[in-house]
Design a protein around this nucleic acid. Structure first.
Length: 294
DNA sequence: AAGATCACCAACCGCAAGACG
DNA sequence: ACGTCTTGCGGTTGGTGATCT
């Protein structure tokens, strides 16, 4: 049987788009908006398949695209995100406003790979080329997670579940406020003075309230993990069933996240609004404070 | 000057997941 | 519950311009 083709290939153009086709597509989307790619070509008078239209729009014609060279900051951000997410180009693209997954993928393959190799780093494992990846990969990811919180990403990028992980913006991270910062006395102090803490809290509150403030890219993201996954990984971690190290970063990620996710506060039964400072990262945002619910 | 090779990137393809009837 | 449709993703290809020999 097989699937029916996405379009009648015999009557569609292929290859490079002409200016006229671009214009038709842009005009149509301006009038009717995105969506319904299957019927769009016909409606817009294009001899293209819907897939092709969608790709052309997303990768080239969208008005919010940032054309031009990648900056050094973007380079480093891509490397960092890749070390964490692997080849999840759409997720990476979600952290780079104006860049598409295709663009980042191409850029990775043509520039960054070489750049990393020249630094003596394996672009797949993000480890020194002469080292074996086996034993320390999990630690590497835990480190990456510690350094990299997810925040400010468009919600749409995180509500969709990539594989088994949930990247739910705002769900597991909350606005720091006076109430929520009260410690349940279950951890060591942050070591900051009250004034410093207040300043940080104000800064975080401002960042949260105005996520678009500031020009610089913000690496703050919150990563959560689905309860199904967490229970599965927990059970996998228990007994002798230690998962084998594989190239799939997500597997490591799951383990790493679970390792991080087991917050003593939750185990002791504190609610979300009573998060301890142990669960607060260096920037003051909260991570992993989510019960590994059943 | 011409052919060979390289680098880049737009576009294609197949697959998977989610939506929907 | 199942099949079909639609959309989105990631890997790959192929055209084109730049550089090298």
């Amino acid at each position: 049987m097989g699937r029916s083709p996405c379009c009648e290939k015999a009557h569609t153009n292929k290859g490079a788009w002409t200016k006229d086709e671009d214009q038709r597509l842009v005009d149509y989307i301006r009038l009717h908006g995105e969506g319904c790619w299957r019927s769009l070509p016909k409606a817009a008078g294009l001899l293209r398949c819907g897939k092709s239209c969608r790709l052309r729009w997303i990768n080239y014609l969208r008005p919010d695209l940032k054309r031009g060279n990648f900056t050094e900051d973007e380079d480093e951000l891509i490397i960092k995100l890749h070390s964490l997410l692997g080849n999840k180009w759409s997720l990476i693209a979600g952290r780079l406003p104006g860049r598409t997954d295709n663009e980042i993928k191409n850029y990775w393959n043509t520039h960054i790979k070489r750049k990393l190799i020249s630094r003596g780093i394996d672009p797949q494992t993000h480890r020194p080329s002469n080292e074996t990846a086996a034993n320390t990969t999990t630690n590497r990811i835990i480190t990456a997670l510690t350094e990299l919180d997810f925040r400010n990403a468009p919600k749409s990028n995180f509500m969709k579940t990539p594989s088994s992980l949930e990247f739910k913006h705002n769900e597991f991270q909350f606005k720091p406020n006076a109430d929520s910062l009260e410690e349940p006395n279950c951890t060591a102090s942050s070591g900051m003075t009250t004034d410093e803490e207040q300043q940080q809290q104000q800064l975080h509150r401002k960042q949260y309230d105005n996520p678009s403030d500031g020009e610089e890219l913000n690496l703050e993201l919150s990563i959560g993990i689905s309860s199904a996954v967490s229970s599965r990984v927990l059970s996998a971690n228990s007994a002798e069933s230690k998962p084998k190290l594989e190239n799939n970063n997500f597997q490591f990620l799951e383990q790493a996240m679970v390792a991080k996710a087991v917050c003593l506060c939750w185990q002791l039964g504190f609610g979300r609004s009573e998060i301890c400072r142990n669960c607060q990262n260096s920037n003051g945002f909260y991570r992993f404070c989510r019960p590994l619910d059943s």
